[in-house]
Design a protein around this nucleic acid. Structure first.
Lengths: 116, 116
DNA sequence: CCAACAGTTCATTAATTCGGAACTTTAGCA
DNA sequence: TGCTAAAGTTCCGAATTAATGAACTGTTGG
């Protein structure tokens, strides 16, 4: 495993972020990480969808989030600890991240209450 | 040309919007439409990038924007008049659209001033 | 050293996207 | 009425990107 690449805050782009968030699995993972008190490993999200994700797929999703500059991943022993980069992101992109996450959360609520 | 499909406001999804916005050409078009006083036709954007876009590509971009629920297109004679759906979108998704557009505009400014 | 575990990489297949060429629709005009 | 041009769309092949099973890499504990 090569060393993990995390872009500098100034190299993060709006379109990179939007591309990463355009996948509901990734948006859900980010949302969860952003709310988490502590960092979480990748395998925590194997069952983030109704059917379990293959771990190669999950690994790719984390790579996309990481290289878009949305999460910071750190090796600890055998696992990877991931946390959102919310504070820096907020400084650079203002309300954007928060607004996206809020809209997604509200959409989840609506979906849950109507269609069930 | 079949009749144009515009999703109902309640069928518009966050991930659909983010996917549409993940392409800088589409984001730029939306931004421009959102600021425009009047509706604009597709061909107005043939030169939205440094090299001119093929019109089939542009047509596809407008289709994506339309089907994501971001723009409303109306046939007038031989051309299509497009306008953003900002008011409804704002009601449904709060600050999200505005925050994305703002972040993108700021990024454009930074790019223009540094790299030139 | 060995087994187990977390995650990555590789290779194959599937799905998207790009863009040129042909097509459709509407308007203007002789 | 045609004829022609303009604005978009559709079609299709090529190129790119995404999904995932299988094999692999590190790391830890015994």
């Amino acid at each position: 495993m090569r060393t993990l690449h995390h872009p500098q805050i100034e190299d993060i782009t709006v379109e990179g972020i939007l591309h990463a968030f355009a996948d509901p699995v990734r948006l859900q993972i980010f949302l969860d990480l952003a709310c988490a008190e502590t960092s979480k490993n990748c395998s925590s999200y194997l069952n983030v969808t109704s059917s379990p994700l293959p771990k190669s797929t999950l690994s790719q999703h984390f790579k996309v989030l990481r290289e878009a500059g949305l999460v910071y991943s750190e090796r600890r022993g055998v696992e990877l600890h991931n946390r959102s980069r919310c504070p820096e992101l907020e400084e650079r992109f203002g309300a954007m991240i928060q607004a996206i996450v809020s809209a997604f959360v509200q959409q989840q609520k609506e979906k849950a209450s109507s269609g069930n």
